[in-house]
């Protein structure tokens, strides 16, 4: 019985750490979602390209890891801005569902471009962080780092949004886009900055994922859906809600996976999500 408990505890702790990654994944998507009111269905594919960017920087160009990581963040930030300028902007006035679908088209496109450019072989940067043993538990150092970075990202984002003019404008624009020019704000510029920021956060997530997972063109499909679920359950654009939702999902996956199998963990999480949508469509923190 003692052994059983320690493994369960390990699953719970690993779930908390996984929650950190999910929270970080959700952060950028939530920002874009909350401000521009557009779902980037291709969000996880941006992360995938960020992972390739880190791989190319480190393993092909031979840069030091830190530079490759910075490169990864920068590449995805630029991609985010480009995505907005060339894909989202032309459909901003179109029906919401077209905005959703157009980024779905980008998803196919980015996956195919990655296949074309990088091939279908699995790649990894050849760095594996050790397991940390705490008592009788084994915890992933990579996940621990991701957890801490997610926490720092959350706090940084909160301070940016509440303490700076730009951050205040980003919060304001989602409430009344039409009068922003009267404040001397160019809405498109705010959208571009937000998209670049959202991309940058996706790049940050890419940096942490690349330490744990092999890279291949379809990797986005494995964590894209769960990221959407986290955002929606947290309440679209509600970052604190997203943070909490990330940890709830992570526990389902980790503990569910511990008792059954990892796929069942995901199944339980998704079924829970569907149920939650009926019970609280506005998100866990939303009010009716």
């Amino acid at each position: 019985m003692q052994v059983f408990d320690i493994f369960l505890l390990e699953a719970v702790v690993n779930g908390i750490l996984l929650g950190g990654i999910l929270a970080l994944l959700a952060l950028g998507l939530n920002l874009v979602f909350g401000v521009i009111d557009v779902v980037w269905i291709c969000y996880a594919e941006l992360i995938m390209l960020g992972m390739y960017a880190v791989y190319y920087g480190h393993n092909v160009f031979g840069w030091p890891l830190w530079l490759a990581l910075v490169f990864g963040v920068a590449v995805v930030a630029v991609l985010g801005a480009l995505l907005h300028q060339f894909v989202i902007r032309p459909v901003l006035a179109a029906e919401p569902i077209n905005q959703l679908l157009v980024t779905g088209g980008v998803l196919f496109f980015l996956q195919a471009v990655a296949t074309l450019a990088f091939g279908i072989e699995f790649k990894n940067i050849g760095i594996r962080l050790p397991q940390l043993s705490v008592g009788e538990m084994y915890l992933s150092v990579a996940r621990l780092i991701a957890f801490l970075v997610a926490l720092a990202g959350m706090i940084g984002m909160y301070l940016f949004l509440t303490r700076s003019y730009l951050g205040t404008a980003i919060r304001a624009i989602s409430q009344d886009r039409a009068i922003m020019p009267l404040m001397g704000v160019n809405p498109n510029r705010i959208f571009l900055i937000t998209s670049a920021l959202g991309g940058g956060l996706a790049g940050l997530a890419a940096c942490l994922l690349v330490l744990q997972y092999d890279i291949h063109p379809a990797i986005g499909l494995t964590f894209g859906p769960i990221t959407f679920m986290v955002c929606v359950m947290g309440g679209l654009g509600n970052m604190i809600g997203g943070f909490i939702a990330a940890f709830i999902f992570a526990q389902f996956i980790s503990v569910g996976g511990f008792f059954l199998h990892i796929e069942w963990g995901y199944v339980i999480a998704f079924v829970f999500f569907i149920g939650m949508m009926f019970w609280r469509p506005q998100g866990i923190l939303g009010s009716k």
Partner: peptide
């Protein structure tokens, strides 16, 4: 991936 690249671009 070239076919899907063109396909994806077309979709967008």
């Amino acid at each position: 991936g070239l076919d899907t690249t063109i396909y994806g671009l077309m979709l967008v």
